[in-house]
Design a binder for these strands. Sequence first.
DNA 1: ATTTACAATATGA
DNA 2: TCATATTGTAAAT
Length: 168
Amino acid sequence: VHSLTIKTSHGRFSARYGEGGLAELYFPETAVIEDSSVPAIVQDWHALTTAAVIAILDGSVPSLLPPLELHMHTDFQRSVWHQLRQIPLGKTASYAEVGQRIGNPGATRAVGGACGANPIPLIIPCHRVLGANQTLGGFSGGLEWKRRLLAIEGITVKPAIVPLTCPT
DNA sequence: ATTTACAATATGA
DNA sequence: TCATATTGTAAAT
């Protein structure tokens, strides 16, 4: 397994590569470990990953992606992530909608779970999945990041539902 | 109109 | 069995 970092205008991301391609992508602020020397093929993947991440942070669509290493996950999760990739830039889908598209209407909650298990944010745009009323759900990299990513794509979200109990 | 309760789904500890 | 990045429905206020 090899780890490399990506320098962007939004910070230093880090990526982890497995045998078959990109396996995980981490937001800045998390521990950054960079391998000093990696195989040539990994360097090629990393060049693609870097370009893709920078493109996304710039509000454009990455033209080419590295192979993704997702075989260790379940079919259900891969189905969900495949659907997320179908969401065009600037659009969003609800958890329920994603569930319907993969043939599991009512699997709304499970979709949330799959999003949480997404190892590759940004490239698999889990940030484009909102609640039914475009409310901000959650995000593995922190809600601040989710808001920022959506803002880049020109999407505005309603504030999360705050249970308002005033002690009298 | 607003609040409360509940069922249904995939997955991991 | 319990938890989670949800949601739609039903009933009561």
